[in-house]
């Protein structure tokens, strides 16, 4: 195997893992706090990506540029994360007292609806706005040319978000309330936490993470129908491998799955689709709770 290809595969893997981690974090966060496995999380990624590309296209009419690209990423994330997150939370409110499996089906139904909404708004032809990638230029790494955007921005965003979320949960009052509700809702409420509000905020944070993943990915990949399903299965593999609700675990699992996935793309492209499941299956075979589940109390 050529070392250039190996370097390229590793860089691709790390970069993809950065994006995958951000999306998976949203999925595992919502599950950790509310016990709902949100299938519609893939749609948040897709809508975030589409919205960012659309806003980008609309702005580039003026002058293109990094500032416009950054603005479109932020605007796409906020718009989709908050709105879609809140709609989902609202829908689920009607099924609060129903069995978890029904709630899962509702998120699946919402996913199907959003699939059509995407077709309605953006049609079926690919959206691709890579201005920011071009403008940020390339860099040579071990003899391979690679884009600064994928090398620095994607993994950097993942690391920053990882630290911010950990800090937020440990040290801010809102974060502590979220942890308290996760640990014991009734007692948290008894201390004065408005659990309904916490649930809403959780869906917004989870939604923002999903949409941000899509927004960040949009300059590097075309937005096409079907990406929601692709990303939800991948992030589910990450979350299950790590153990549901595990933040640090998700970071490591995203790296493992990201790197093996891109290695297979270069070496055995026909295996790309199955690699995440092979990893997940192998892990779950030996550790059914996931790699990083320590004790229940430590979820999120």
């Amino acid at each position: 195997m050529n070392s250039g290809i190996l370097t390229l595969a590793l860089l691709d893997g790390v970069s993809y893992a950065g994006m995958l981690f951000i999306v998976s974090l949203g999925l595992t966060f919502i599950f950790g706090v509310t016990n709902i496995l949100n299938v519609a999380h893939g749609s948040l990624y897709a809508c975030g990506g589409y919205a960012t590309a659309s806003i980008g296209l609309w702005l580039m009419g003026n002058d293109g540029g990094i500032i416009n690209s950054i603005f479109s990423i932020i605007a796409g994330t906020l718009l989709v994360g908050v709105i879609v997150g809140l709609i989902l939370e609202y829908l689920l409110r009607f099924f609060e007292k129903k069995p978890p499996i029904l709630q899962l089906i509702i998120t699946f139904a919402f996913f199907m609806i959003l699939e059509d909404v995407q077709r309605l708004i953006w049609g079926t032809s690919p959206y691709f706005v890579s201005t920011i990638v071009g403008e940020m230029g390339n860099v040579e790494v071990l003899g391979v040319f690679y884009t600064n955007y994928q090398l620095i921005v994607l993994p950097g965003a993942a690391v920053i978000i990882y630290f911010i979320l950990n800090w937020f949960l440990k040290h801010s009052l809102l974060g502590k309330k979220i942890v308290a509700v996760t640990h014991n809702k009734e007692v948290a409420v008894g201390m004065g936490v408005d659990a309904k509000k916490i649930k809403k905020i959780t869906f917004i944070i989870g939604g923002l993470l999903g949409a941000f993943g899509g927004a960040l990915a949009s300059p590097t990949t075309s937005m096409v129908p079907g990406i929601s399903a692709d990303i939800i299965v991948l992030s589910f593999a990450v979350v299950a491998t790590a153990g549901l609700g595990q933040v640090t675990g998700a970071l490591i699992a995203a790296l493992i799955i990201g790197i093996f996935r891109s290695l297979s793309i270069y070496l055995y492209p026909e295996l790309e689709v199955v690699i995440p499941y092979v990893i997940m299956g192998t892990v779950l075979l030996f550790k059914p709770q996931g790699l990083f589940t320590v004790e229940k109390a430590r979820r999120i």
Binding site: K177, V179, A180, H183, M191, G192, E295, A297
Partner: peptide
């Protein structure tokens, strides 16, 4: 709450 110190546990309801 296991993620907080005893002091943080005590202060938590007051802060809320």
């Amino acid at each position: 709450f296991p993620t907080m110190s005893v002091k943080e546990n005590m202060m938590f309801p007051c802060q809320i």
